[in-house]
């Protein structure tokens, strides 16, 4: 396959304080075997050779499991290939001469740190608010000590596939984090081990989500379409239902957003 020459429009921003803008670059000689991030590596090498500052972007595993890569590519999180992270997006999906727009996730809760890197710490705060599950210490339990129906295990695993990349927030017209929070809740609440703290955890994580400045879900489901791990809207229905139970019917004492309540 022949190499690609592309025109990129990339968001450049020196730091969190300074204003940013879209800057146009030409990148040449990109192999169609390259991943999207490798394409940016090639561009950065070309920029460095010219003495320009390379573009900052997040990445780590480059195999679709860590959730570090992000990027709004042509108006779609992770480029819009179904169930694909940016690091797993390959340049064979692009044509020679294409123009590509690359922007950071945009949300009040995810401020830009530099160029295409945003601060996703609010996700960590939501996770911390979830607290811990109750498990007996001591000797290792026997396998299958707790019986879990295959369907529950599968459903929980589907929710646990969330890599917390933030594509749901980026795609949501309201900057809502509900798919993420709901996936984390469903991951535990579809298993017996998650039950003792279920009501408390739901309230604590939703409170932390609200405090972080995310928007509200309007049932557009752009998050579901954008999710590189194919998390389904069902997890949000579960969270919505549990939240009503927790807030209106549980005897839980006051819940603090740090999860210590």
């Amino acid at each position: 396959m022949s190499d690609l020459n592309l025109t990129l429009h990339v968001w450049r921003q020196r730091n969190a304080k300074s204003p940013g803008k879209m800057v146009t670059y030409k990148v040449t000689g990109v192999s169609t075997h390259a991943s999207f991030l490798e394409m940016l590596d090639i561009l950065n090498e070309q920029l460095t050779a010219k003495g320009e500052e390379p573009i900052a972007f997040d990445h780590d595993c480059r195999e679709g499991i860590c959730g570090m890569c992000s990027l709004m590519i042509n108006g779609r999180p992770h480029g819009g290939q179904r169930a694909t992270t940016t690091c797993q997006l390959h340049m064979r999906h692009f044509k020679n001469g294409d123009e590509i727009w690359i922007e950071p996730w945009r949300a009040e809760a995810f401020p830009v740190i530099k160029d295409l890197c945003v601060d996703r710490t609010p996700f960590d705060r939501v996770i911390a608010a979830g607290g811990f599950i109750t498990a007996n210490c001591g000797s290792a339990p026997d396998a299958n000590d707790i019986l879990i129906p295959k369907e529950s295990a599968d459903d929980s695993m589907d929710a646990a596939a969330c890599i917390a990349c933030g594509a749901c927030v980026a795609a949501c017209p309201n900057g809502s984090a509900m798919l993420f929070v709901a996936a984390k809740l469903a991951h535990l609440h579809r298993l017996p081990q998650g039950q003792p703290e279920r009501m408390h955890r739901t309230q604590a994580m939703v409170t932390a989500m609200d405090a972080a400045g995310f928007g509200n879900c309007s049932n557009h489901y752009e998050c579901e379409a954008a999710c590189p791990k194919d998390i389904k809207r069902d997890v949000m229905a579960l969270m919505n239902r549990d939240y009503a139970k927790a807030a209106l019917a549980s005897r839980d004492r006051e819940t603090k957003s740090d999860g210590s309540g």
């Binding site: 709004m72 108006g75 945009r106 949300a107 017209p173 309201n174 928007g215 489901y221 752009e222 379409a225």
Partner: peptide, 22 residues
């Protein structure tokens, strides 16, 4: 709240499944 949660717009944004009505 939703406006405040997304203060900066994308230069390019493609809604894919949400309806105009929504």
């Amino acid at each position: 709240k939703n406006r405040a949660a997304r203060p900066e717009r994308y230069a390019k944004f493609k809604p894919v499944v949400s309806s105009a009505a929504g």
